[in-house]
Simulated assay, not measured.
Amino acid sequence: MPAENSKSPTRSDQAKETASRIASGAGEAAQGAATHYVKEPAQDIFSLVKAYAKDNPDVAACWAFGLGVIVGWKLRP
C-alpha cells in the first residue's frame, strides 16, 4: 500500500468538497427558479387584480365581501 501524505486531501475529503460544491450550485439554481416561477407570476397576477379593482371598484368590493364571507364561514369553529 502506498503511504499517504497527511497534507494531501484524501478521496473522502475530495468527495465531500465536490458534493458541497454541487449542493451549493443546486441551491442557487433552486433559488433562481423560485424567484422566476413563483415571485414574478404572483406579482403579475397581483398587478392585474389591482388594475381591475381600479377600473371596477364596485365589482371588486363585491368580490372581496363575498370571499370574506366564505372564508369567515369556513374558518368558524
Rank of each mutant, 00 (worst) to 15 (best):
M1T: 11
E4S: 13
N5D: 15
N5H: 10
S6T: 12
S6C: 10
K7Y: 04
K7M: 08
K7R: 14
S8K: 13
S8L: 14
S12W: 13
S12K: 13
Q14T: 12
Q14H: 05
K16M: 04
K16Q: 08
E17P: 01
E17N: 09
T18A: 13
A19T: 02
A19W: 00
A19N: 12
S20F: 03
S20G: 04
R21Q: 03
I22H: 06
I22L: 07
S24L: 14
S24G: 14
S24Y: 07
G25K: 06
G25P: 06
G25T: 02
G25N: 06
G25R: 11
E28W: 12
A30V: 10
Q31F: 13
G32I: 06
A33Y: 07
A34V: 11
T35Q: 14
T35R: 11
T35H: 07
H36K: 15
Y37L: 14
V38A: 07
V38I: 14
K39M: 11
E40N: 04
E40H: 06
P41N: 01
A42R: 05
A42M: 11
A42V: 10
Q43Y: 02
D44R: 09
D44T: 12
D44F: 12
I45Q: 05
I45F: 04
I45N: 00
F46G: 11
V49E: 14
K50Q: 14
K50W: 02
A51S: 12
A51G: 04
Y52S: 07
Y52F: 15
A53C: 07
K54F: 01
K54E: 15
K54V: 03
K54C: 01
K54D: 14
D55K: 15
D55S: 12
N56M: 06
N56C: 03
P57R: 04
D58H: 10
V59W: 06
V59Y: 05
A60E: 00
A60R: 01
C62F: 11
C62A: 13
C62E: 14
A64H: 03
F65Q: 10
G66P: 00
G66S: 08
G66R: 00
L67P: 00
G68S: 03
G68T: 02
V69Y: 03
V69L: 04
I70R: 07
I70M: 05
I70F: 00
V71Q: 04
V71E: 05
G72K: 01
L75F: 08
